[in-house]
């Protein structure tokens, strides 16, 4: 089966650190940073490089801060 490569971009300034995205990622790609954004929220970030672009995190994010990319590798 062609391997799928995914990637996510998180707008860390708009993330409110609610952590709802963390448990829904099948590969535990996303985690909470120790650093805080301008509003003082610990933001989510891509902790590992095993994203498969399923967008689970993006569609449960109440603030819609995650953009997802996905590519079928040959």
């Amino acid at each position: 089966m062609a391997k799928i490569k995914g990637d996510i971009v998180i707008d860390i300034e708009r993330c409110k650190g609610c952590q709802v995205c963390v448990p829904v990622c099948p590969n535990d790609t996303i985690a909470m940073s120790d650093k805080v954004n301008a509003k003082g929220f610990k933001y989510a970030f891509k902790a590992q490089d095993n994203c498969i672009g399923c967008a689970n995190c993006a569609i449960v994010c109440p603030d819609g801060v995650i953009t997802v990319y996905k590519k079928k590798m040959k």
Partner: peptide
């Protein structure tokens, strides 16, 4: 390869939402 390119876009915020930051509580 960096796949963060338009052609590989899988999900992005819809145009029908303004870019105003939501006032809702985190996780609501």
């Amino acid at each position: 390869e960096d796949i963060k390119k338009a052609e590989y876009l899988a999900y992005k915020k819809t145009e029908v939402l303004t870019d105003k930051v939501l006032h809702y509580c985190p996780g609501c």
